[in-house]
């Protein structure tokens, strides 16, 4: 069952375009799979399907030779035994023949011995005569040879001395050469050393310069960073101060708004389209220093009601903080614009 499912899924993954082909293929595959599945379902003992497939595939190719060998093994042993018996027999016969040969050989040897002794006595006489002649020749030869050897020896000695002299000369020259070479190498080495040192020095200097420059740059950057941080810090502080002032300002804006709302009597001719903008200037005490109509509504009664409201407050609610006051409340604009008429 597992195999079937897997195969079906595999088929499903094939990108077939033609439905007929797909159908045919599917049917075919289903049949195949069914068959395969059928056959595959029988061996319960069979292990993993994957290994089944592998084994099936690999055993497609048989190896016949070991099979034959195995089958013929006992026949070969028997043959060997027979042969050994035969050989034994042959060896026995051979040994007998050899012994007979040996006796014949002994007789032949005794006869040969007698012959050899007679020949030896003749030879001995020969040899004595020869010896005497040879001894004379040898003596003459030795004399010549001694003379030759002495001459050769003198010559040898002379050659050896010359050789030694030449070799000494050579050695001296070689030593000289060596020394010169050494000196040269040393010089070169020194020069190289000097050059290297100079180069190193230059590089060092360059490096130092570069480092100095980098240092300078880094220093600059760090200074800038610090400055930036300082600036940011200052900005944040300013912002915080601003925010404080702002919230403070908003608080007092609300208070002023409330006081003015209570003090403002919009006339019955007021409409939501009317707006009067007034610029007011306060003293640090919160008292009104001046009020100026910047934009009128076009309705005198409306404008007057706004001015009257602004002027009706004896003291404006203002923050204690002088900065906040200066920033926001020293001079500001009030806009009268009714939104919710009675």
């Amino acid at each position: 069952m597992t195999g079937q499912e897997r195969d079906v899924t595999n088929i499903g993954q094939q990108p077939w375009k033609s439905p007929v082909a797909l159908s045919l293929l599917l049917h075919g595959l289903i049949v195949v799979v069914a068959l395969a599945g059928w056959s595959w379902t029988t061996p319960e003992s069979e292990p993993e399907p994957r290994s089944i497939a592998a084994r099936l595939v690999t055993q497609q190719e048989p190896e016949p030779s070991p099979v034959v060998e195995e089958v013929d093994e006992p026949d070969r042993d028997e043959e060997r035994k027979k042969e050994q018996q035969e050989q034994k027999r042959r060896q026995e016969a051979e040994r007998k023949a050899a012994e007979e040969e040996k006796a014949r050989e002994e007789a032949r040897r005794i006869q040969q011995e007698k012959e050899r002794k007679r020949q030896e006595e003749a030879a001995a006489r020969e040899r004595a005569e020869q010896k005497a002649r040879e001894e004379e020749a040898a003596r003459q030869k030795a004399e010549a040879e001694a003379k030759e050897r002495a001459r050769q020896k003198a010559e040898e000695e002379k050659r050896r001395q010359e050789e030694a002299k030449r070799r000494a000369e050579e050695e001296r020259r070689k030593a000289e050469e060596e020394r010169r070479k050494r000196e040269e190498a040393e010089r070169q080495k020194r020069e190289e050393q000097a050059r290297r040192e100079a180069e190193q020095k230059r590089k060092e200097a360059e490096r130092r310069l570069k480092e100095q420059q980098l240092e300078a740059l880094a220093e600059e950057a760090s200074r800038e960073r610090e400055a930036e941080a300082r600036r940011q810090q200052e900005a944040a502080a300013a912002k915080a101060r601003e925010a404080r002032m702002m919230s403070e300002s908003e608080k007092y804006q609300a208070l002023i708004r409330e006081r003015l709302s209570q003090a403002w009597y919009p006339p019955s001719s007021a409409t939501e389209e009317m707006t009067a903008r007034l610029q007011i200037t306060l003293l640090p005490t919160g008292e009104l220093q001046s009020v100026k109509l910047i934009n009128g509504s076009g309705n005198t009664a409306f404008d007057n009601s706004a001015i009257s409201a602004v002027k009706s407050l004896n003291r404006y609610p203002i923050p204690d903080d002088r900065d906040t006051f200066e920033r926001y409340f020293r001079q500001f604009t009030i806009e009268f614009n009714p939104r919710r008429l009675k």
């Binding site: 002023i256 003015l260 009601s305 009030i334 614009n337």
Partner: peptide
């Protein structure tokens, strides 16, 4: 400068009679 200046808007008046 005008936009930097604070503007307070009054949209409601006193409920009572003048």
């Amino acid at each position: 400068p005008a936009s930097a200046e604070l503007t307070i808007r009054i949209t409601e008046g006193a409920d009572s009679a003048i």
